[in-house]
Structure formats: C-alpha cells, structure tokens
C-alpha cells in the first residue's frame, strides 16, 4: 500500500537525544487534565519559551535518537494537540517511532544537519519515494514503511482497529 502527501512548514531545530521528558515532562503529565493543557509545557526543560512560539505549521527537525527514554504516548499526542504533523530526524527511538505511526504523526528519517531554524521546508511523500525539499535542494528520506501505511493513513491504531477489528489486513 502507498499514499501521497505533501506538508509545508517552518523548520524548528532540536539537537540529538531529545528524550520524552524533554518533549513533555512526566510531572506535567501527572498534573495536567488533558493534552491541550499540556501543550504550553512542550519542550520546557530545554527552553520554557519554545512552547509559546510553536505554530501548527511548524515541522520539528532534530538530530539522532529523537524521543528516547520513556514509552509514554503523550510525547506524541501533546505535539499532535499543538498541531504538529511531522517530525524529521536523523533517527528515532523505537517507542516514539511506533507511537507516532499509531497516532498519525509523520516520522521522517533524513540527514537533517543542513537545515536551519525557521527555514521553510516541505516533506513530500510519493508512491516512489519520500524526500525533504529545502530551498533548491532535496534531501532523500525514509517515510512510513509499506507494512504500516494502512495504520498511518487511518490516522492511527485506534481508528485502524475501530475499522478493521484486528490486524488481519496487515498479516
């Protein structure tokens, strides 16, 4: 199965090993009543000013091992609640990656070192390939694995299982 998608946005640059507590702190998860309330604490332990500056059209651009640490799914659902649709990173921690797929947040693996804060970028997913458009150039990228596209395009695992009632459609 394949799908096509094009997302344009402003690059927001993060470093290596951004762990789930840096995305949203466990103590905010304990105290906040819902994900919308938590959005104002996004990335606060890196810089408390980031959350207020995040815009729904922003694309998170990071180094290696994005989302390491806890398996907590709010690390994906709170950025989603803030309107973030995609994250481009050199690599992802595995639990973050599966939570992203399971929530319809696009995880793109690409060499992000040349992308600068605030730069306009575009993620293009076609039947043949995925790439990140930056100025006049294109960075080759890995999008959603073919086996998981059916979950991703349903918007995530909840919608997928609500519809299919099991995994028979995947294998």
């Amino acid at each position: 199965m394949s799908f096509e998608l094009s997302l344009k946005g402003r690059a927001r640059i993060f470093g290596d090993d951004v762990n789930t507590d840096y995305i949203i702190s466990s103590r905010r998860k304990r105290d906040a009543k819902d994900e919308q309330e938590m959005t104002r604490f996004l990335f606060e332990d890196i810089d408390p000013a980031i959350a207020a500056s995040l815009k729904p059209e922003d694309i998170i651009v990071a180094g290696k091992n994005f989302g390491c640490g806890s398996a907590m799914e709010v690390a994906v659902t709170v950025p989603r609640a803030a309107g973030i649709r995609a994250i481009v990173a050199k690599s992802f921690a595995r639990t973050f990656y599966r939570n992203a797929i399971n929530n319809g947040l696009l995880p793109v693996i690409a060499d992000t070192h040349g992308i600068k804060e605030g730069e306009p970028i575009e993620i293009t997913v076609t039947q043949a390939s995925t790439f990140v458009v930056l100025g006049d150039g294109r960075i080759p990228a890995q999008g959603v694995p073919a086996e998981l596209v059916s979950i991703f395009i349903e918007g995530g695992l909840v919608s997928y299982l609500a519809k299919h009632r099991g995994f028979a459609a995947i294998g």
């Binding site: 398996a71 799914e73 994906v76 639990t95 599966r98 939570n99 695992l157 909840v158």
Partner: peptide, 8 residues
C-alpha cells in the same frame, strides 16, 4: 515496551 495505543 509499547505505547498506550498498542496496549489498548
């Protein structure tokens, strides 16, 4: 380790 959607 898995996520909450996976657990559900």
């Amino acid at each position: 380790g898995i996520g909450a959607s996976d657990l559900a």
